[in-house]
C-alpha cells in the first residue's frame, strides 16, 4: 500500500511539475472552456445546452489522449521502465497509476466546469447529477485506457502525437461536442460513431439531461465500458519495458481490436 501511495503521489505531482502535462491537464482545458463559454455561447446560444458535457469530454480527451501517452513512450525510451522492472514494479502499476492520476487531474477540472458552467456561461446543468458523475467517471476510464494504449503502442513521441490526433481532432469536429449528432448529415454520422466522444455525448444527453438521442444511452455506456476494458487490457498485454528490446508479447496491431466496439456502434447506428 505504501508503494502504491508513493507511486500515486509521485505521478500526481508529475502532472503539475511537468510543463507539458500541466498544459494538457489544466491550462488547455480551462482556457478552452472559458473561450467557448464566452464566444461560442454568444455565436450559437444553443451551444449552452451542451457546454458543460462538451467541455468535460474535451477535458478528459486532452488530459488522457493528448497529454498522457507521450510521457509513457518517453519513459520507455529513456530506460525508466528498465529501472522499474529490475526493482519489481509491475507493468500494471506503471500503466494504471498514470491513468488514475491523469483522471484525478481531469476530474478536478471537470468539477470546476460542472460547478461554474451554469452560473458563468448559462450552460445547462444536468437533470441527474448522479448520472452525470457516473458517465464522467466511465468516460475518464475509457479515454484513460485509450491513452494508455496509444502510449504503449507508439514507438516515439511523434507517432504518439499522430495517433492521438487521429482520435482527438475528428472527435472534436464530429463527436457531438460542437455540433449535435442529429444535425450532422446521415452520411457523416457513421464516421462520428467511430469515435468515443460521440458515445460520451450521447450518454450525457440521454441519461444526465433526459434528451432524445440517436444512440440509446444504455448502448453508448456499454460500448464505452467495453472499450475501456479492451483498451486497458491490451495496453497491459502489449506493454514493452524496454525500447532497446524489440521482443513484445503481441503485435502492436492487436491494439486495433480496441476499436471493435466503435465499429459495432457504427454498424448499429446505420441499422
Amino acid at each position: 500500500m505504501t508503494a502504491f501511495l508513493n507511486h500515486f503521489s509521485f505521478e500526481f505531482k508529475t502532472g503539475l511539475r511537468n510543463r507539458n502535462l500541466l498544459m494538457t491537464n489544466y491550462l488547455l482545458p480551462l482556457v478552452f472552456y472559458v473561450m467557448m463559454g464566452f464566444v461560442m455561447v454568444q455565436i450559437n446560444p444553443a451551444f449552452a445546452a451542451t457546454l458543460i458535457p462538451s467541455m468535460v469530454v474535451f477535458t478528459m480527451m486532452v488530459s488522457t489522449i493528448l497529454g498522457m501517452p507521450a510521457p509513457l513512450t518517453e519513459a520507455r525510451s529513456q530506460g525508466i521502465y528498465r529501472s522499474y522492472k529490475i526493482n519489481g514494479i509491475p507493468a500494471l502499476s506503471i500503466l494504471a497509476i498514470p491513468v488514475l492520476t491523469t483522471i484525478f487531474h481531469a476530474m478536478i477540472v471537470s468539477v470546476i466546469i460542472a460547478l461554474t458552467g451554469g452560473s458563468f456561461f448559462d450552460g445547462a446543468t444536468p437533470e441527474s447529477w448522479g448520472a452525470f458523475v457516473f458517465i464522467t467517471l466511465l468516460i475518464a476510464f475509457t479515454f484513460g485506457g485509450i491513452g494508455a494504449l496509444i502510449g504503449v503502442v507508439g514507438s516515439s513521441t511523434t507517432s504518439v502525437v499522430m495517433l492521438a490526433q487521429i482520435i482527438f481532432i475528428p472527435s472534436i469536429l464530429l463527436g457531438g461536442m460542437m455540433i449535435p449528432l442529429e444535425q450532422l448529415p446521415e452520411s457523416v454520422r457513421w464516421i462520428s460513431a467511430l469515435f468515443p466522444a460521440t458515445y460520451a455525448m450521447e450518454a450525457f444527453n440521454g441519461l444526465a439531461y433526459g434528451r432524445e438521442t440517436l444512440i440509446q444511452p444504455g448502448v453508448a455506456l456499454i460500448i464505452l465500458a467495453i472499450s475501456a476494458l479492451l483498451s486497458f487490457g491490451f495496453a497491459v498485454y502489449l506493454f514493452n519495458w524496454d525500447s532497446q528490446n524489440g521482443t513484445r508479447r503481441g503485435n502492436p496491431l492487436l491494439a486495433l481490436i480496441a476499436l471493435v466496439p466503435y465499429i459495432a456502434g457504427a454498424i448499429y447506428i446505420n441499422l
Binding site: Q78, S83, N87, Q244
Partner: peptide, 30 residues
Amino acid sequence: RNLVGVQLQTSGLPATMTVDESMRFFTAYH
C-alpha cells in the same frame, strides 16, 4: 527482485523525480 540489486549501465529515472522521492519510491516497492 528482493534478493538482487542492479545498477544498470543505461537506465534512468523520471526527470522530475526528486532524490528523496526516488529513495522512498524504490524502497517502498522492496
